[in-house]
Computed example of a mutant assay.
Amino acid sequence: MKRKGFLKNIIGALCVGVLMSMPVTVNAAEKEDVLGTWTGSSWAGVTFDEEGAQDKWNKKPYMMQSGTLTATNVNTGNPETIDYDFWRGYKINNVAEDEYADAVLYKIIEPGKTMMAWNVFKEKGMSEWQTYGSATITKVEKTDTGSDDSSDTDSISPSRGCDHLYEWSITTEPTETEDGESSYVCTFCGDIKAKQPVSADAAIRKMLLASIKNAEAGTTVTFDNKAWLCYPQGVLDALKEKGDVSLKTDFTYGGNNYSFTIPAGSDYTNLEQADFYGFMYLLGAFNGSIVE
């Protein structure tokens, strides 16, 4: 991988009166290092060409400019200093207080094969950047379309002459008991470049949230899926937003059966802030009991 010469200049970003220095490093990438299609986490899949970078939502420019950016990890609350080789988006420097901005930062791990990606964003009225963490993406190898070998029945060969546009989409919907599958598929010819599983938890969560949202006021939704021993924050958010529905949870832990109910209109301020809440923790918080 080619590297640019040593750069001494410092990029200063003044955000709400706070000077954040982002030094340009010597490891800025070249376009030849990144051109092509990269897959991995559903949000991080992207195709780089000479004009821009197309992900599943839109096409944005990318800048072959390296540096560092400090962002707060939304999940942990801890600051994270990200050392990147180039970035995608419209703006990461000199972002005003009343502006929203987002970008994706990339760090090349193995040239032409593996990169790390961080989606970072700055809300209006905030000075600091935030991130949900990183994802690993890998470059899709080109398929030899000149071969007549059709023995590989697990792959789909690209259609000759198609100007491929790939997007991630659910090709097999998950159920409450079985994982589904997501494919990186061409919207024109159906060529599939990569596949990844979609957890059955996604179907369980979707059905539970729908049950809460659609429940009549004053009723109780009962959840007794044996695969779960915790609730993501989104479930409590749905209950709080609904306001007039209770959630009863029956579960088994350590060979014992337990039950607790989160009443409608509960006060959640006494709960510890977390992304997931274990059922045993909620059992104590909402005066649950063992079931004989």
Score class of each variant (00 low, 15 high):
T269K: 12
T187M: 11
A200G: 13
I204R: 10
A29I: 09
A117D: 04
K60A: 15
K60V: 14
V198Q: 13
S150R: 13
A264K: 04
S246H: 04
F286L: 09
A227W: 00
V291N: 01
L7Y: 05
D154C: 05
G67L: 06
Y100W: 06
G52R: 07
S134L: 15
I108N: 04
V74L: 10
E32L: 09
G243K: 00
V120I: 08
S147E: 07
G265K: 04
D49W: 02
E141D: 12
K107R: 07
V16E: 13
K195V: 13
Y132G: 14
L14A: 14
P197M: 08
K206V: 00
W43R: 03
K124N: 10
L7V: 08
S66Y: 09
G125H: 06
K248F: 00
R88E: 11
A285K: 11
D152S: 07
S150V: 13
N58P: 01
P232I: 00
V198K: 11
Y106Q: 08
A215M: 07
T136L: 11
S266R: 08
D244V: 03
G254D: 00
G180N: 01
M126N: 10
I204T: 11
N257L: 01
C230F: 03
E51Q: 05
E176C: 01
E123C: 11
G218F: 05
G12Q: 09
E241K: 01
S157N: 07
I137E: 06
A71L: 03
M64K: 05
E173L: 03
G133C: 10
E216Y: 02
S41C: 11
Q65V: 11
G17T: 12
Q196V: 06
S21A: 09
K206G: 12
G67W: 04
V74W: 05
G254C: 00
G190Y: 13
I290E: 04
S199E: 05
Y106E: 05
Y166C: 07
E216M: 02
P158M: 03
G36T: 06
I170R: 13
S211D: 15
E123A: 14
K56H: 15
G77E: 10
N225I: 04
Q196A: 15
M280W: 02
T37H: 08
S266F: 07
T47W: 06
W168A: 03
S211E: 05
A227Y: 00
I137P: 06
A264G: 02
M116S: 15
V198Y: 05
N93Q: 11
V140E: 05
K139E: 06
M1Y: 11
S66V: 06
T220S: 06
K124I: 15
F286K: 06
P197D: 12
K31S: 15
T219A: 15
Y231F: 14
E110Q: 13
Q65P: 02
P111L: 04
S289N: 07
K122P: 04
A29M: 09
D55P: 06
V95T: 10
Y100T: 02
V235F: 00
E241T: 04
S159T: 14
S157K: 13
E97T: 12
G77D: 10
I10T: 13
